[in-house]
Write a protein that binds this DNA or RNA. Structure first.
Lengths: 206, 206
DNA sequence: AATGTAACTCACCAGTTAGTTACATTTTAA
DNA sequence: TTAAAATGTAACTAACTGGTGAGTTACATT
């Protein structure tokens, strides 16, 4: 086997990237440590040196994955939109993020099947979602401005929004089979985005 | 080990029930044949006698699971509802089914993570969904009667409806952590049902 | 009582798994 | 210069895995 350059930081990163691909594809149980080592082009021993165990490696991957979502959501906070514009922008952002980052979708699903057992071990700080707070506040403001329905609860709307986006990606394979069209394709996803936007706005707006 | 009563049909069923629990909990990779045998209270050898392989057993479970969904959907066809009543009834049905049958939810999710590889092997007949056709026809009729928006596509609406229901169950564990409330609880699910109904009707109706 | 067979048990295998260890090489710092 | 710490390799192990060969038991038929 060819020698690796000595670079602890790079090696750690290579392991994380390989592990994410392996965990996304096969889950915690199905993933093989030897496979991760081979994919990272590193010796298996280093995985144990850097991460300690397969489980600990998985937790690091989970953390990294949520960090990506947080980074994407930061754009929402920066844009400082409100009302209908904000809702549209949020849906665009989630659709684009989930369409691009299929490993994120897979790992979240695996974590759900695992009853979020490992997510629970993550420090609370890694789970704070400033974007959720911002969305809730914007909905409340929209109600005050008389553009959103008063009877709606901000938290419920935020939940509806996120679930409506996510399900298009988490279940696209089985639904493709059931509906007889490839829902994973870029065109179908674009269509789902338009549809989701229309649905959310019809629901929210007076 | 205690002797089993000789009953091929019962044994087959015991294996299927045990396998579904094991596959739902751990997926195809994570499930252990020995565990299924222990859970079914049967000798492992019989699993191979009846089903041939772990994969073949999984496919049988997948088939059984979809049959349950089909049976639940049959009630939609029987009720012969239309318009807003139908939409409400469909949401009720999916919510109630998914809330009760958590193993269904898990297995569908696993199958999606597996890119529906095993679903593709199932005979097309097991995947026909008369309920979907009925819903699409009812939406078209609603448009003619002037109660539903004309610009909507029936197929898109059916998709929105199913995804909006499913995501509440598939992602409840991670979302519970993110939103700081137990979205798997009966009360929260009831709240999500009300919300989903309001959203779909606002979206569909003129 | 003898026979045939479906249902079943037991003991085992060959391959795989996460994790470890002995040892070699390189970097760092005094 | 040199000792120690860090980084790397490859061989190893103990436990586990899906799957199987061979033999046993219950029971119906003759």
């Amino acid at each position: 086997m060819s020698k690796r350059e000595r670079n602890a930081e790079q090696s750690r990163l290579d392991i994380l990237v390989a592990a994410e691909a392996e965990f996304a594809g096969k889950g915690l149980y199905g993933a093989r440590v030897d496979e991760i080592a081979a994919l990272a082009g590193i010796n298996k021993r280093m995985i144990y040196a850097y991460f300690g165990s397969k489980e600990a490696l998985y937790k690091s991957v989970l953390q990294a994955v949520y960090k990506r979502m947080e980074a994407a959501e930061a754009k929402i906070l920066e844009a400082r939109l409100d009302g209908r514009d904000l809702i549209g922008a949020v849906i665009d952002l989630y659709f684009d993020f989930l369409a691009r980052d299929t490993q994120f979708v897979s790992i979240i699903m695996w974590e759900n099947l695992n009853k979020a057992a490992y997510l629970k071990d993550l420090p609370a700080q890694d789970l704070e979602r400033p974007a959720f707070t911002y969305i809730r506040e914007a909905i409340a403001a929209g109600k005050d401005q008389g553009i959103f329905r008063l009877e709606l609860d901000e938290q419920d709307v935020a939940l509806s929004l996120i679930t409506a986006c996510f399900a298009n990606f988490s279940n696209c394979h089985t639904l493709s089979r059931l509906f007889g069209r490839d829902l994973c394709s870029a065109e179908q996803i674009e269509q789902r985005k338009i549809e989701t936007r229309a649905m959310m706005l019809a629901y929210l707006c007076l």
